[in-house]
């Protein structure tokens, strides 16, 4: 799936993460991570981002993630929300299972 226009999901509140997806430049999934726990969990957060986007068929996009201590499940939820918004779908959430 191709990201055509920028989309945003999530907030900057504690325990949340704000995800912005922008059209890719042909370089795969590029991640700009800003996290309060980047030193400890930066690699793990990026792994979840890549895995989730790949599962959803997104292979070329620029991801900006501003993390406020989100759990993995919150990160996945915000990524899925952003991708479905990019696709212009309300989202049948079980399709990707």
């Amino acid at each position: 799936m191709k990201i055509e226009t920028p989309v945003v999901a999530g907030t900057l509140e504690s325990s949340d993460v704000m995800i912005t997806l922008e059209p890719g430049t042909g370089g795969g999934i590029e991640i700009d991570l800003n996290s309060t726990v980047e030193k400890q969990f930066g690699c793990a957060i990026k792994k979840v981002i890549v895995e989730t986007l790949t599962e959803l068929g997104v292979t070329d996009t620029k991801v900006t993630a501003v993390d406020r201590g989100a759990l993995d499940c919150t990160l996945r939820a915000r990524l899925k929300t952003a991708v479905f918004r990019a696709a212009g779908q309300e989202g049948s959430l079980c399709q990707e299972d």
Binding site: D72, C73, T74, K80, E90, G91, L93
Partner: peptide, 16 residues
Amino acid sequence: EKDAARFLIREALTSL
């Protein structure tokens, strides 16, 4: 935000 809440609750139910 209906879509975001739905995704969040589904992920929470399956993970937490």
